[in-house]
Design a protein around this nucleic acid. Structure first.
Lengths: 226, 226
DNA sequence: ACCTGAACACCGTTCAAGT
DNA sequence: ACCTGAACACCGTTCAAGT
């Protein structure tokens, strides 16, 4: 509950804070309690420092958020991509985007809010471009494939984030379907729509459809030529 | 600039407000100036009434937003769906979701923020379920197709909304690619990534890929059997 | 039933002032 | 150079009080 007693340097007056320490603390705070917990006052209290100190070191809230996202982004820099064929390797990167977004959902949601998704996923975006390149896609086609795949993943993430934060629940998709009297819709469909889909499985299917549309494997996926 | 002189009823003291008038005004405000303009104080001033009056009529901000979204949703109720084959008609509904979201981007963005996207698009969701039904999809398959398509559209919308609100522009995807020295990525690709994609065209391609994955036309799309 | 003003507990941000 | 307290201009929400 008490703010961590920050290590006061020899002077006895300096708080011993620097840009990185503040950003690090902000990142931890968001990861633990979500973006709403990140207020300048709260963060300052947690660092045992006056609110205005944060402004001196990192600037306003927007700069803080940008720095925080970039910090996490660097951690996503090195990833292992495996897969036999090109399309399989593209799928692997897409899954990385999905997995890392879910692993750091609070920061990802924050990045979505401020429109800095690309900043957060830049290393993965580069990795995706590289795999598309080895798949033979270049120029505008490669860009379109990359953007389409990432936008689709983003759409899935928005829904995935909503699932764990139930919210008002009143205007959740599945509860809305509880009141529908179906004209021209089979009852089995209405019933199914009251349950959430298997998101990871559907993700796999949907992204695969996009990948198949853009990257045409020379060899069949399951039996790459040795 | 001045608040609209609200029609004071005969009593001379009543503001003559009701639930619907407040919600209507809130909707207009959001459509015109975005979700950040919707504050309880601002709305009250615009209605020429005390802030607390809004609380009495419609409840807090969340209820107001929900009501506002639902109001707009009702306007999307009746739409014309055309197209020869089943998959063409499904595409038509998807385009409707896209178009109406862009036409009312501020409210749609707000709905995204509070997790009420489904509430806003419910009429279109029903229309989509109906077209999928006539395409022969039932039960869980129909649900998965519907969800996948809508999630993909949502992902595109998030990016589309970012485009017209440039924001900090520093961590926009295309500016980030300006600094990239490409290892294993063709220069033409890097160059292309510095430009935004043709969003409507890419939307068409991506959603079509999903539709083709889920709904298999019995007849070819272009030449339906008479 | 309908509407008000005052008050509470928050925000982000600025700025003159301290050491 | 680094840090502070006070202040400004906002929020959403509650609640006793008016007619």
């Amino acid at each position: 509950m008490k703010a961590a007693t920050s290590p006061l340097r020899g002077t006895g007056r300096r708080a011993g804070l620097d840009h990185d320490a503040i950003v690090e603390r902000a990142l931890t705070l968001v990861e633990a309690e979500g973006s709403t917990a990140l207020t300048m006052r709260r963060l300052a209290a947690e660092l045992g420092v006056a609110t205005t100190t944060i402004y001196w070191h990192v600037g306003g809230r927007d700069e803080l958020i940008t720095a925080l996202i970039q910090r996490l982004s660097e951690r996503h820099a090195e990833i292992e991509i495996e897969g036999a064929g090109p399309s399989e390797r593209v799928m692997c990167v897409a899954r990385h985007v999905w997995d890392s977004a879910l692993a750091h959902r609070n920061v990802t949601a924050l990045a979505h809010q401020v429109g800095a998704t690309s900043l957060l996923e830049m290393p993965l975006e580069i990795a995706l471009a590289r795999e598309l390149d080895t798949a033979g896609l270049r120029g505008e086609v490669a860009r379109d494939a990359l953007r389409a795949i990432l936008m689709c993943v983003a759409g899935f993430l928005v829904v995935a984030f909503r699932s764990d934060d139930p919210g008002p629940a009143r205007h959740q998709a599945r509860t809305l379907w509880a009141d529908i009297t179906a004209d021209g819709i089979d009852r089995s469909t209405v019933t199914a729509l009251r349950e959430p889909p298997d998101l990871p499985a559907l993700f796999e299917t949907a992204v695969r459809a996009l990948v198949d549309r853009f990257v045409v494997d020379v060899e069949p996926r399951d039996a790459p030529v040795a």
